[in-house]
């Protein structure tokens, strides 16, 4: 019998080896390596380095205002994205689902921006924000359009949100649409016969049936929003100054264009990972519990 167990192991390894090897080299080892270096003062060049314990983490969180600001800026962004992206996507999905003839048309239009690369979207919107809107404002005297959409941190937060939503809502909308199609028509009809209006039907019949999709979309938005990079890179480059810098850009700057503090930059990466981990676990646990109740 030992030969049989041996054979099973051998075939298991033969089947998983290609995936496992590439995965280990390019994802697993870098993940562990990054955590390892986060406890050192390695500069990425020298062979020697020292362990400095939690020094990097303490410095990042207490003595690096740029990093802490980027942290808060990202948190604010995540919060707005979770609420707005899901609200807009859900409303669009419900509205589209209620159409008969124009359903396919609207679905196609609303999803299209999602196909375009985020960085290309950011460039298109740069044109709109810096050229088109000011001109429209000038010609039509809709003066509220003439803002420094990218140059003024107050407005650039809004423009970052607009581009992110423009690019991302379609994806969530598709997931919500698929979930809405799974809600049996007969249930909705029964509610209407019982005298519920459209809003009541939605809240008491449809919502509980699509909680699973809501959990998924919250998860995807949360996860994606913490990792925001391209939109900000393409739109403001983090500026003016570092006023719109997000965590990922701060890490990028620390690691690739500043002063080669790889150990320190790795510590920031670990902080990002831990934050995402905590937020997602809390979100999933809380919402799964709600799902069961509903």
């Amino acid at each position: 019998m030992p030969t049989k167990a041996y054979k099973t192991y051998l075939s298991l390894l033969a089947f998983t080896a290609p995936a496992l090897i590439l995965y280990a080299i390019f994802l697993l080892v870098p993940t562990i390596g990054g955590m390892y270096y986060s406890f050192t003062d390695w500069n990425g060049l020298n062979r020697s380095y020292d362990f400095i314990g939690l020094g990097n983490f303490v410095e990042a969180l207490t003595d690096d205002p740029d990093f802490v600001n980027s942290l808060w800026f990202t948190l604010k962004y995540v919060l707005f994205m979770i609420v707005l992206q899901n609200a807009i996507a859900l409303v669009l999905a419900v509205f589209i689902e209620s159409r008969k003839k124009s359903k396919g048309f609207f679905r196609t239009i609303f999803f299209m921006p999602n196909m375009i690369s985020t960085i290309i979207s950011a460039f298109m919107w740069t044109f709109v924000f810096t050229q088109v809107l000011p001109q429209i404002a000038e010609k039509t005297s809709m003066l509220f359009l003439d803002q420094s959409w990218i140059g003024d941190p107050k407005y650039s937060f809004v423009s970052i949100l607009i581009v992110s939503l423009w690019n991302g809502v379609g994806y969530m909308m598709i997931i919500y649409l698929a979930a809405l199609q799974g809600v049996p028509q007969s249930l909705k009809e029964a509610a209407i016969i019982d005298g519920a209006n459209a809003f009541q039907t939605f809240r008491s019949v449809t919502m509980p049936m699509i909680t699973h999709a809501i959990t998924i979309c919250f998860f995807l938005t949360l996860n994606g929003a913490f990792k925001v990079f391209e939109v900000v890179f393409g739109l403001t480059g983090g500026g003016p100054g570092r006023s719109t810098q997000v965590i990922t850009m701060n890490i990028y700057e620390e690691a690739f264009s500043n002063n080669f503090r790889y150990g320190y930059a790795s510590a920031k990466s670990v902080i990002l990972f831990v934050i995402i981990l905590i937020f997602t676990l809390v979100q999933i646990t809380v919402m799964k519990r709600k799902e069961v109740e509903a």
Partner: peptide, 13 residues
């Protein structure tokens, strides 16, 4: 590793 963000591994990668 499915939750590990790309930005956390880009330096060692």
């Amino acid at each position: 590793s499915m939750l590990v963000p790309f930005h956390s591994i880009m330096i060692p990668l």
